[in-house]
Design a protein around this nucleic acid. Structure first.
Length: 483
RNA sequence: GGCCCCGUGGUCAAGUGGCCUAAGACACCGCCCUUUCACGGCGGCUACUCGGGUUCGAAUCCCGACGGGGUCACCA
């Protein structure tokens, strides 16, 4: 039988990282089994409609390299793939369930329910719908329906026995039926609830493997009861451990760490994000860490999925990102880093190409680039103590001597000869003649030129990037600090 | 609180009864390389939640405790 998986996000306008990982696993599983990956939009909550939200889903998935085989925009034999467009399809199924006694009309208002819930909680009890309306006679129900009273349709869950299923990662799951609530299947607005639409659609769309977050583990028995009531085959379940920010919190909107776009905006590469995300909750069983999408398709194995929640470690992601950046073609890197350079150098003269060469393997996340190169634009305020460096054997006196040594050398280089080779050769020659150590000259020079302890590139590269005039000016300022 | 799940270093994790005096990676620390930083190389730190069993033998199996997470909506 052909494997069919699905990703069924609700259009909120953002792609949650946990959701993205769910999509990824669904995609990988479908691909590696030569099956189909289906995209379905779950927008049964009309109050939550967000403009442009489906485009966010499309763009993210495509941007990450996960092309769906069937979905709203690409079509397929099981459409429509947007739940609100399937609206009329659910009611008949619900009515069928009412006929067979697996569901019933309920006229309790939200307000009444709220009161009963509050009363139960006041007594320290868990509120569970008490099947109040199950006792209504057929005539009573018909009368109220005829009167046009608002209603919902509820599942009639058994109160005795247990419901069990096998999850491919969590194994045997068993739940006492008396803990199952009679969930609403059709809402008062006529729309199905997520719970109901999900079951109907998964069946109608021929989904064979349902992969979703572990938060559905305990509502799954209620879905199974529905499948059984219809006489439908229950799909294979593959519940995924959740992705956490730390031991106590899930990734959340509040902290700006939950959405795909948060990371892209910061300058994380999609490939790095996907690669790392794949590894939270799953591992290939060997020491490999770097995977292309195709390699993931090959390596992915449901049986190597973990059960325990995983913490999303931004440090590790950052390391992956830095590695991916280092592996980029130089031209690709240059193109990618240019807008970040622009934030600092807009309208100013700067050799982006050379700067990019220096920054390429020092870039961990693109949004850190501006701060790293800003000193080239404006000399930071710095303390004269910076000139003293034990290992380089420098102190204020040495530094002053070094700068005094460099000054005429730099002055002696013609504007048109201002390049790194010339700078290097002349500086080295002067250092050799002076009998000083390289570090004793280069350290103070670099401090004077940059005003900071660490920089991308050394004194020569910085002098080149700064140009003759600016270099000499900064050198002079250094001498003043040392006076 | 009821129900369900989970529990190896700070984090991701390998491990499915003897190969475990417990791998690898990130982070951290030290050294080397070096005109700084980074890269790279080398080395180090840190873990089987606890208590009972079962067994010749347990990180691995069972029970309990503790800890953590999830779920209990006319949200998805």
């Amino acid at each position: 039988m052909e494997v069919r998986t699905r990703f069924a996000p609700s259009p909120t306008g953002f792609m949650h990282l946990g959701g993205l990982r769910t999509a990824l696993y669904n995609y990988l599983f479908a691909r590696q089994n030569g099956g189909k990956f289906i995209l379905r939009i779950e927008d049964t909550d009309q109050e939550r409609y967000v403009e442009g939200a489906t485009e966010v889903i499309y763009d993210t998935l495509r941007g990450c390299g996960m092309q769906w085989d069937e979905g709203p925009d690409v079509g397929g034999d099981y459409g429509p793939y947007i739940q609100s467009q399937r609206k009329d399809l659910y009611m008949p199924y619900a009515k069928k369930l009412v006929e067979t006694g697996h569901a019933y009309y309920c006229f309790c208002t939200e307000c009444e329910l709220k009161e009963r819930r509050a009363a139960a909680e006041a007594k320290g009890l868990v509120f569970k719908y008490d099947k109040h309306c199950l006792g209504l006679t057929k005539e009573e129900v018909d009368r109220r329906l005829a009167e046009g009273q608002p209603f919902v349709i509820r599942q009639n869950a058994p109160t005795e026995g247990t419901t069990s299923y096998t999850d491919l990662v969590y194994g045997e799951m068993s739940f006492p039926n008396d803990t199952l609530d009679d969930m609403v299947l059709i809402k008062a607005d006529g729309m199905p609830t997520y719970n109901f639409a999900n079951v109907i659609d998964d069946h109608l769309m021929g989904i064979t493997h349902v992969m979703r977050g572990a938060e559905y583990l305990s509502s799954t028995p209620k879905y199974n009861l529905l499948y059984e009531a219809f006489g439908w085959e229950v799909p294979q379940y593959i519940h995924l451990p959740s992705v956490m920010r730390d031991a106590h919190h899930k990734l959340s909107k509040r902290d700006g760490d939950a959405y795909y776009s948060d990371y892209v905006d910061k300058g994380y590469l999609t490939e790095a994000l996907i690669n790392y995300l794949a590894l939270v909750g799953w591992n290939p069983g060997d020491d490999r860490e770097f995977f292309t999408m195709d390699e993931l398709v090959q390596a992915f194995d449901v049986h190597r999925l973990n059960k325990a929640p995983g913490i999303f470690d931004v440090d590790k992601l950052t390391w992956f990102n830095a590695e991916y950046i280092r592996r980029m073609d130089f031209d690709a890197y240059l193109a990618k880093v240019t807008p970040w350079f622009d934030q600092v150098f807009a309208g100013k003269k700067m050799d982006y190409h050379r700067l990019a060469e220096l920054m390429h393997d020092r870039t961990e996340v693109f949004n850190r680039v501006p701060d790293m190169v800003r000193f080239l634009c404006t000399l930071p305020d710095y303390e004269a103590e910076l000139f003293t460096h034990k290992k380089m054997k420098t102190n204020p006196d040495v530094a002053r001597t070094a700068l005094l040594l460099c000054q005429p050398v730099l002055e002696g280089i013609a504007e048109e000869d201002w390049n790194e080779t010339e700078l290097h050769d002349r500086l080295m020659a002067a250092i050799t003649d002076s009998g000083m150590k390289n570090g004793q000259v280069f350290w103070p020079l670099r401090i004077a030129l940059s005003g900071q302890a660490s920089t991308p590139g050394g004194a020569i590269e910085i002098a080149y990037l700064l140009g003759k005039e600016e270099s000499l000016c900064r050198l002079q300022k250094g001498l003043e600090k040392l006076a």
